[in-house]
Design a protein around this nucleic acid. Structure first.
Lengths: 139, 139
DNA sequence: TCAGAAGTTTAGCCATTGCTAAACTTTTTG
DNA sequence: CAAAAAGTTTAGCAATGGCTAAACTTCTGA
């Protein structure tokens, strides 16, 4: 009998999940910055997230440690293959959530904010429902 | 000219928001436990959230510090008026999200998990849309 | 070219959120 | 009632994620 796992697996493992969320936000932002401006510097991420560049630096160090980013001192930030994959996937999920919110009538501004928060907590099943609704225009 | 705030207010202030999420999860759980079993003990919350009772203890200490909970040593955990208000509001928001997910066809199990994650990131505007959809059965 | 501006890194601070081990209190039960 | 079980608290460790100050590197323009 294997009942050793916590009764309520429904509840997320807060610390770890939070770390993944930040990782996703960062790789997404890095990919976007590289796409739009050719490169990604710590200062760009600092502006974007409203944190100090010291904080960015350490987060990037973790991403590097975990195999998502790669850097040389004083050089632009790059994504590894794994980082690019994660960025692409996060971006896609983000877009689905954002478009869904627009489709149900949420304003662009609020949809942008809420999508940021929601995207990390949507299971594949829910995501499929979101997409289905957005595409068909109804349900 | 007041442009001192970070350019992207869209992005949540991670640390602080995360703390609020935990506060909401806890007061919600405390209220529920008191309702269903008459009282709330640290060990109940530990089981519920899958963390150690030491962790629960310290979280409760923070909630107490912040005016949401009150405790005597070795006694059950209680909510202050503010805690009860927060619990009620969180519960309501949770239910709206959960019912909305069911309404768009997400399974009960997945809806329960996703609602836990999503509820903290839904603005009043989006919440109204969710509720409108759930109630009218369409949009 | 070289001095200052811009950007990055290091050092060191704090709070939160997780843990285990151990001490302590309360409850249960033989 | 006393001992064991159950629950709580304290002490102390680690990682994450935030900060400022200060040192360092790189870039830029007079």
């Amino acid at each position: 009998m294997n009942e050793s796992q916590p009764i309520k697996r429904r509840h997320r493992k807060t610390r770890q999940d939070h770390a993944s969320e930040i990782a996703e936000d960062y790789v997404e932002a890095i990919a976007e910055l590289i796409e739009t401006s050719g490169q990604c510097r710590a200062v760009d991420l600092a502006t974007r997230f409203g944190v100090s560049s010291v904080t960015v630096n350490r987060t990037i160090a973790r991403l590097t440690r975990d195999g998502f980013a790669s850097t040389q001192p004083y050089s632009p930030i790059e994504l590894t293959a794994a980082g690019q994959r994660l960025a692409k996937q996060s971006r896609k999920r983000h877009d689905i959530v954002y478009r869904f919110l627009l489709a149900i009538g949420v304003s662009e501004e609020v949809a942008a904010i809420d999508a940021e928060g929601i995207e990390h907590h949507v299971s594949p099943e829910t995501l499929r429902k979101f997409q289905a609704y957005t595409e068909s225009g109804s349900l």
